[in-house]
Simulated scan of single mutants.
Amino acid sequence: MGRPQDPHHPRSFFPFGNPFRVIAPKGSHMSPQLRALLQAFEARLTDRLSKLMLKSKEETLSLSWMTKAMESLLDSYNDIRTLISDLELPVSDWDDKWIEVYLDISRKVLDICNAFSSEFSRLNTCNLSLKYALHNLDGTSSKLFVRACSSLDDWKQHIHSMNPRIEKCSTILDNLMRSLDLPKVKNSAKGKILMQAMYGVKVQTAFVCSVFTAAFSGSPKKLIDLDVADMYSWAPAFSRLQSLINDEIRTNFSNGKFSVLIELEVVDAIVKELNPSIQGGADATVQTESLLKTVEELGKAEEKLSKGLDLLAKGVDQFFKVVLTSRSDLLSAPSSAKAVKNCGFGGNANLKVVS
């Protein structure tokens, strides 16, 4: 479990100030060409963040939005790979500290992805109880009603249980934040651009991972409020997105919801409505039109939940493989400008399937 948080004093991204002030463009003597590369990167990051703004409150926090957020994060990691290629920064010019920072942070990201994957497995296992209940509700025997009721009870029991691996994500996120203090960059305008771009992607990573952790844990205490300096062009878009998403999540939890995942809340509401009608194995031969409609609604809701989880799980798995491959490429790449194209912050060239 993460440490208790006062809702009026949320976790700060940089409790000791912003360590990235040392890589600000001011005084770095960037050429117009290099500055243009950084500006283009940050403009794309701004656009990705803006596209995650909710179109309606009903979208918070849907599995489809979470899938978009994961796709956006994957795009940002691949954009770092493109930037490295455009900078023509050979591996031989990489400071050992830069590599150590990336390997350390990416390892933490992989740990979080593994925790998310374990939650998908848990939720899919819970859904088996729903599927079995729906199968029994198609019958006409009162014994089938008893089985359906038992399956729904199993679902409620397991869906409200805690995943210990998700609970540990808060600790990983805390460690991730402490490791984001990138090393100073001296006498390298290209290095400063790379570090500033990485900062933007790391902020996006911490935000998305904290939202996922809060959603899966059922606790707003898992959220992180990131304080980003206005000097970054993407900061306003990020601040608006973070404020909207975090406020919505906290509001939903304060209203007594056990989950902020819309698809999961819908299923839970239907199960609560259905249970009294089938409690005790009621005579299935006198099924009312209302009962049949409720069962049909549960079937549609379960299908939507299953499909949403499947798409999100695939997105997280793809992200995991890209980060893992980038680590492998970075460690094995020879000291040449050609090799760096495949060892970026999420490059997907020559993607290897990892068991």
Results as ranks from 00 to 15, higher is better:
residue 263 E to L: 11
residue 280 G to S: 12
residue 224 I to F: 06
residue 213 T to V: 10
residue 118 S to R: 11
residue 190 K to V: 06
residue 51 K to D: 12
residue 235 A to W: 04
residue 333 A to Q: 05
residue 340 V to T: 05
residue 14 F to R: 04
residue 115 A to F: 02
residue 146 V to I: 15
residue 42 E to W: 04
residue 26 K to M: 09
residue 73 L to Y: 01
residue 55 K to G: 15
residue 300 K to A: 15
residue 327 R to L: 11
residue 50 S to P: 00
residue 319 F to T: 05
residue 355 S to G: 02
residue 98 W to Y: 14
residue 115 A to V: 08
residue 114 N to I: 09
residue 335 S to R: 12
residue 294 T to C: 09
residue 175 N to I: 03
residue 280 G to R: 12
residue 290 S to H: 09
residue 227 D to S: 12
residue 64 S to E: 13
residue 332 S to C: 12
residue 132 Y to S: 13
residue 70 M to V: 15
residue 341 K to Y: 00
residue 209 C to G: 00
residue 156 K to H: 08
residue 15 P to W: 08
residue 243 S to R: 15
residue 110 L to K: 04
residue 81 R to P: 00
residue 285 T to E: 11
residue 169 C to R: 02
residue 168 K to M: 10
residue 325 T to Y: 03
residue 67 T to Y: 05
residue 300 K to Y: 12
residue 43 A to W: 08
residue 27 G to H: 09
residue 35 R to Q: 14
residue 336 S to W: 02
residue 127 N to W: 03
residue 255 N to Q: 15
residue 275 N to C: 08
residue 272 K to R: 10
residue 299 G to L: 11
residue 191 G to A: 07
residue 84 I to K: 00
residue 69 A to Q: 03
residue 308 G to Y: 03
residue 188 S to C: 09
residue 96 D to M: 13
residue 277 S to P: 00
residue 288 T to Y: 04
residue 196 Q to S: 15
residue 102 Y to R: 14
residue 102 Y to K: 09
residue 348 N to G: 08
residue 179 S to R: 06
residue 270 I to K: 01
residue 107 R to N: 13
residue 295 V to Q: 06
residue 11 R to T: 11
residue 79 D to T: 06
residue 293 K to M: 12
residue 206 A to K: 02
residue 328 S to P: 00
residue 34 L to G: 01
residue 42 E to F: 05
residue 235 A to L: 11
residue 169 C to Q: 03
residue 4 P to Q: 09
residue 48 R to S: 07
residue 14 F to I: 05
residue 151 S to M: 13
residue 212 F to D: 02
residue 266 V to K: 12
residue 43 A to F: 09
residue 193 I to D: 00
residue 16 F to E: 08
residue 138 D to N: 12
residue 322 V to Q: 01
residue 109 V to E: 07
residue 42 E to C: 07
residue 153 D to F: 08
residue 62 S to P: 03
residue 108 K to R: 15
residue 336 S to Q: 04
residue 62 S to Q: 11
residue 272 K to F: 03
residue 100 E to S: 13
residue 307 K to E: 13
residue 70 M to T: 10
residue 115 A to T: 05
residue 230 D to S: 15
residue 230 D to V: 15
residue 42 E to S: 06
residue 198 M to D: 01
residue 41 F to Q: 06
residue 319 F to Y: 10
residue 274 L to E: 02
